[in-house]
């Protein structure tokens, strides 16, 4: 009879024996060696019936299809742009995916996206060799002006967004900042300078404590303690309109649900 040696939601490390016997099945972050199932990544163990997998706690962003990410233009190509997406691989934004408008042949591409511009875009294709195609066509995809960009570990992004975007909208409501979270761990924040600082501190706190239980409550009390009044009503209004954009995190939401 198989035996589970580690509790659900415990931290496992490479080489650690999670379960004995053939009653369990290895999934992502775990593998079978003879009769045992061992971890091959640092992560939180998640037991789903017979299936044992781990939720990663660290690691670089690996591009995957339909992810909304924040990128930086690093090169202008013959007919497109090369985008740094905070990953081991760069994305290519082809001309036809850049805009709904017609771009004339031979046009100066830097007029649309210049070097060092930051953009919110979506990954439309990833090949087996991790060549990445990028698009700017879609709701909410745009060039970023102003604000600030911070980088967090991509594995913490689901926690920062929260269930159905609950965590990020809580921060938005309290600080009045506009926030866009990219799946690649880059986060764009714009608001009153003092509020931006609070937002950054809150996100850093979430990042540090992402593996803990009851995080939403803790962040709520943290925000209550640190919040200051929003001076500019404009920001408040705009954030309300910006809200419904969180559907991209469905996959990750399912993962983080168990952690609550």
């Amino acid at each position: 009879m198989g035996k589970l040696l580690v509790n659900d939601k415990d931290i496992v490390v490479p080489g650690e024996i999670i379960a004995e016997g053939m009653d369990f099945l290895p999934s992502t972050g775990t593998y079978r060696h003879k009769d045992n199932i061992l971890a091959d990544k640092v992560g939180l163990l998640s037991v789903d019936g017979k299936v044992l997998k781990t939720i990663a706690l660290s690691g670089k962003y690996l591009p995957s299809r339909n992810d909304t990410v924040i990128g930086r233009v690093i090169d202008i190509l013959m007919s497109g742009w090369r985008i740094d997406i905070n990953s081991a691989y760069t994305a290519v934004l082809p001309l036809q995916e850049a805009s709904f408008d017609y771009i004339q042949k031979g046009a100066d591409l830097s007029k649309f996206f210049a070097l060092d511009d930051y953009v919110v875009g979506k990954i439309i294709r990833v090949t087996s060799q991790n060549l990445v195609d990028f698009t700017m066509k879609g709701p909410g995809l745009r060039k970023l002006y102003g604000g600030r960009i911070i980088s967090v570990s991509p594995t913490k992004v689901p926690r920062i967004i929260g269930k159905q975007g609950s965590m990020v909208s809580m921060i938005k409501d309290t600080t009045g900042c506009k926030i866009t979270v990219g799946q690649n761990g880059l986060i764009w924040i714009e608001g009153e300078p003092e509020q931006e600082v609070i937002t950054v501190n809150t996100i850093r706190k979430i990042e540090r404590e992402a593996h803990k239980n009851g995080l939403t409550e803790e962040i709520k009390s943290y925000l209550d303690k640190n919040k200051i009044e929003i001076k500019n009503k404009e920001f408040k209004k705009e954030t309300k309109e910006e809200k419904p954009k969180e559907e991209r995190t469905k996959k990750e939401d399912d993962e983080s649900q168990g952690e609550q």
Binding site: V13, P14, V42, G59
Partner: peptide, 11 residues
């Protein structure tokens, strides 16, 4: 390497 989240079957 393990801390970096790289897949490795053991330390």
């Amino acid at each position: 390497l393990a801390d970096a989240g790289i897949r490795m079957k053991d330390v």
